[in-house]
């Protein structure tokens, strides 16, 4: 596995008032810092996906608190902070025949990043490199 593929934590939450707060309280109590996150909701439940400082340690802590947590591989690609930024990234993967399951964006101090959950993360990193685009490692986040 390349360093450019890193771990996202997904947490099962109920879709009702107070349940995000209760989950977020657990994150606070476990001293887990969020770098980026995304919330997906369906009727009755939601999935909270997060990129955190130390995903392995956070995963163990959350499991110990009886939360349902899953580790997923994710990649992050840097794009230009200009119209067409998303297009450049999406086109590379589309041309390479790699499917994007979902994604979310994050802007750090220097450049916008797009986090992507794809069906083949290693191939996606290769495709970006070939296209001359920069993917980010966990340490660089």
């Amino acid at each position: 596995m390349t360093d450019d593929v890193f771990i996202q934590l997904s947490i099962f939450v109920n879709n009702e008032p107070g349940s995000l707060a209760s989950m977020a309280k657990t994150l606070k109590e476990c001293d887990i810092n969020l770098k980026a996150f995304n919330i997906a909701e369906s009727s009755g439940f939601g999935v909270f996906r997060a990129i955190v400082d130390d995903p392995e340690e956070a995963y163990e802590k959350l499991k110990a608190r009886n939360l349902i947590v899953r580790k997923t591989e994710l990649i992050a690609v840097a794009v230009n902070d200009a119209p067409g930024g998303l297009f450049s990234a999406a086109k590379v993967l589309g041309d390479a025949g790699i499917n994007i399951e979902y994604g979310y964006a994050h802007k750090n101090k220097t450049e916008p990043l797009i986090f992507l959950r794809v069906d083949d993360p290693v191939a996606a990193v290769e495709a970006f490199k070939k296209a001359g685009m920069k993917t980010v490692t966990a340490k660089e986040l």
Partner: peptide, 10 residues
């Protein structure tokens, strides 16, 4: 049986 993909859960 938990998945990060909403699709699987639905």
């Amino acid at each position: 049986s938990f998945s990060d993909k909403l699709d699987d859960m639905i």
